[in-house]
Simulated assay, not measured.
Amino acid sequence: MLLKLYPDNPNHREFRQIVDILKNGGIIIYPTDTVYAIGCDINNTKAVQRIAKLKGTTADKGNFSLICNNLSTLSEYAKVDNTTFKMMKKNLPGAFTFILQASSNVPKLFKSKKKTVGIRVPNHFIPLRIVEELGNPILTTSIHDPDEVVEYTTDPELINEKYNKQVDLIIDGGYGNNTASTIVDCSTDSFEIIRPGIGELIL
């Protein structure tokens, strides 16, 4: 199913529909401030496994991140010191994935011994509103395009053609970007950019 959402006229009923799908174990494709992504409710184990299978991996081995709508729940999923927190606050919402030391909740979510977790607070109303309505973060992973020239799929109509039988909902929020988020590893004593992307880090 393809659902069109526009920034100037977001409908509360449509967001409730999205959240109902997530709560029932559905997986969705949605726009972010960078590329389109696949997501599900982090508390639904079967949905997490479905996304892992779609990406050709398993929940314990996949590189998934969590999308939060702000930093207020950060301590539930990650261990973060004051310096890192202040730096993240300067850069979020924004096109960053911050790799942090995982809290004890993360291994339970992924049925693994994961010691780190990626955190995203994208500068895009759709994922932020979904998380707000859902009441907890969503698991997220970017859509890769098999075409080597175009690393990420940007056209929601084409995404729908490819994925409509594999996911429960595709949200059309207009054309997406072709460049992913900047990944910053904060799991050690220093901040290291391990993948340059759209975001320009403010220290």
Score class of each variant (00 low, 15 high):
residue 201 L to T: 04
residue 38 I to G: 12
residue 187 S to V: 08
residue 116 T to C: 10
residue 124 H to V: 02
residue 9 N to G: 04
residue 121 V to A: 13
residue 76 E to I: 11
residue 85 F to W: 02
residue 156 P to L: 02
residue 197 G to V: 07
residue 60 D to K: 14
residue 77 Y to F: 14
residue 73 T to C: 07
residue 61 K to H: 11
residue 34 T to C: 00
residue 132 E to Q: 15
residue 176 G to D: 00
residue 189 D to M: 09
residue 80 V to P: 03
residue 197 G to L: 06
residue 94 G to L: 02
residue 164 N to F: 15
residue 121 V to F: 15
residue 105 N to L: 12
residue 61 K to T: 12
residue 82 N to Y: 09
residue 82 N to L: 10
residue 38 I to W: 10
residue 39 G to V: 13
residue 60 D to M: 12
residue 27 I to N: 01
residue 173 G to L: 12
residue 91 N to E: 04
residue 19 V to E: 05
residue 198 I to S: 05
residue 52 A to W: 07
residue 198 I to T: 08
residue 141 T to E: 02
residue 121 V to C: 12
residue 115 K to H: 08
residue 202 I to A: 02
residue 200 E to K: 13
residue 178 N to A: 11
residue 178 N to Y: 10
residue 64 F to C: 11
residue 120 R to D: 08
residue 195 R to C: 11
residue 175 Y to Q: 06
residue 124 H to D: 08
residue 106 V to Y: 05
residue 97 T to P: 02
residue 33 D to T: 06
residue 77 Y to C: 11
residue 138 I to P: 06
residue 190 S to R: 15
residue 70 N to Q: 12
residue 28 I to E: 03
residue 167 V to S: 01
residue 16 R to C: 12
residue 120 R to W: 07
residue 11 N to Y: 10
residue 173 G to N: 10
residue 146 P to G: 05
residue 188 T to M: 04
residue 154 T to A: 14
residue 26 G to Y: 00
residue 30 Y to C: 09
residue 12 H to E: 10
residue 6 Y to H: 02
residue 82 N to Q: 14
residue 181 S to T: 08
residue 22 L to K: 04
residue 105 N to Y: 13
residue 81 D to H: 13
residue 60 D to V: 06
residue 97 T to V: 09
residue 155 D to W: 05
residue 90 K to M: 07
residue 28 I to H: 04
residue 76 E to P: 00
residue 55 K to T: 08
residue 119 I to G: 02
residue 196 P to N: 05
residue 47 A to F: 09
residue 158 L to P: 09
residue 200 E to G: 08
residue 176 G to V: 00
residue 28 I to F: 04
residue 163 Y to T: 00
residue 53 K to R: 13
residue 72 S to N: 11
residue 37 A to V: 01
residue 152 Y to K: 11
residue 63 N to F: 13
residue 94 G to K: 02
residue 191 F to T: 08
residue 91 N to R: 01
residue 57 T to M: 09
residue 173 G to I: 13
residue 51 I to D: 07
residue 147 D to F: 04
residue 76 E to C: 08
residue 43 N to D: 10
residue 190 S to V: 09
residue 125 F to E: 03
residue 70 N to V: 09
residue 58 T to M: 03
residue 158 L to W: 14
residue 106 V to S: 02
residue 51 I to C: 10
residue 199 G to N: 01
residue 88 M to R: 03
residue 81 D to Y: 10
residue 43 N to Q: 10
residue 57 T to G: 07
residue 42 I to P: 04
